[in-house]
Simulated assay, not measured.
Amino acid sequence: MRAVRPATGFLTGVLTAVLALGGLVIGGLGLLPAFLWPGSRPAARRWARAGADRLAAVELRRRSLFFGEQWPPARQPLPYLLARVGAGLLSGVVLGLLGVGLVLAVLVVRGLLRGSLGGWDLLAQLVLGGVLLFLDLQGIAALARLDARLARRHLGPPEHEVLRRRIAELSASRAGIVQAVDRERRRIERDLHDGVQQRLVALAVLLGRARRQRDPAAAARLLAQAHQESEDVLVELREVAWRAYPTVLDDLGLAEALTGVAERSGIPVHLKLRVDRPLPRPVETATYFVVSEAVTNAVKHSGAARIDVTVTRTAAGVSVLVADDGAGGADPGGSGLSGLGLRVAALDGVLTVHSPAGGPTEIKVEIPCD
């Protein structure tokens, strides 16, 4: 069923080519006297351009309706229409040959049923018909690709504009990565300073008090507190290291890393992983950090009772959806989500946030990959 719309668009392209040919012939003949008279040539050019724009708009509508493409108005409608007329009429010829082949196939079947067709004749007809059918279908596929190339060439932005936009996107992405790395470095420093360092100071104080303590029982209590503090320091240090980069991602893969995120969450996380083949390492790392940061934000700010995480490997890449039933109001421009957006954009991905007041919050990421 997915091929019905493109096939219908291809057939419609034959009709629009005939329409464009008629419009060009009628318009050209009608405007020929105006072009011959010098005083009326500017007006004739405007009328010709307006007519070509209308005919090109029909093609734009066809590409939009049947192929889901959105194009700006044609920069040079006349060259596009001339190319489309040629391709469309050739497509009509190829489709006509396919129709002739179908008629011949019906005649062969009729002859076979009547017994007027011998075995060798039938074999020859089948071989010849199969070869011609294959060539005809290849021609249709090639003309369909040609139709798409003509649209890209004449309707899309110029090549130098595409390159300029791509360079601008890469420059912005590079600057965003630098900002994201700097922001992540400051966050790690803050975690170490406000968390691990303070606990180490408290541990040093406890050990110092235990050394100065004369009462063995009091010294033992202080050492027990110091031992507990040292274990808490190790736990927090592991948390900081895990947020910087989880080694389990290298050792056991994405599934185990995301399972660890779900187990450490203070809110129940329901994880659905639909990845049937390995992801490229940069995409896998970005996917992990998207889920980790989104879950952390939900735990801290949403007041949710449930978080659903779905990671799906699609034909075009990977799709990540993190949804919670919290109060909503997540700010896409906040430090956490904006950093994720920069990380995703560096891989040509897109991050969208839907978080109305009152909830729910949905964070969706699409990252292309082979």
Rank of each mutant, 00 (worst) to 15 (best):
A172E: 15
D53T: 11
R313S: 10
G39R: 10
D250E: 14
K272P: 00
R185S: 13
L234R: 14
L351C: 03
I188P: 00
P282S: 06
S173I: 01
L82P: 01
L31G: 06
L97Y: 08
Q125K: 06
R214K: 12
P216Y: 05
V344H: 03
L206R: 09
V106C: 10
V350F: 00
L170M: 13
S171G: 12
E239N: 13
R343E: 07
S335N: 10
A204P: 00
D348L: 08
L29A: 14
V240S: 03
W71H: 13
V94P: 02
V233E: 00
K300D: 15
V205T: 14
V291D: 04
A83K: 02
V131K: 03
A294Y: 01
G27D: 02
L273P: 03
L112A: 13
L150A: 05
G359D: 02
V85H: 03
L337C: 06
Q225N: 11
G156R: 03
L170N: 10
E161T: 15
L321K: 04
H301F: 14
I140A: 11
R343H: 01
L192F: 12
L104S: 09
R164F: 11
L254G: 01
G266I: 00
T352L: 07
A180M: 15
V4N: 01
L78R: 06
D370L: 09
R174S: 14
A204C: 02
V295H: 01
L98D: 08
G253C: 07
A305S: 15
L90F: 12
I26R: 09
G176S: 11
V109L: 15
G359S: 07
S91G: 14
V311P: 02
R313L: 07
L19K: 02
S338Y: 01
Y80L: 15
V318K: 01
D331E: 10
R209E: 15
A20V: 08
L36R: 15
Q213W: 00
I267M: 06
V290E: 06
A20N: 06
R110T: 11
L36P: 03
V248P: 00
S265I: 07
L107H: 12
V353L: 11
R187N: 06
D276N: 10
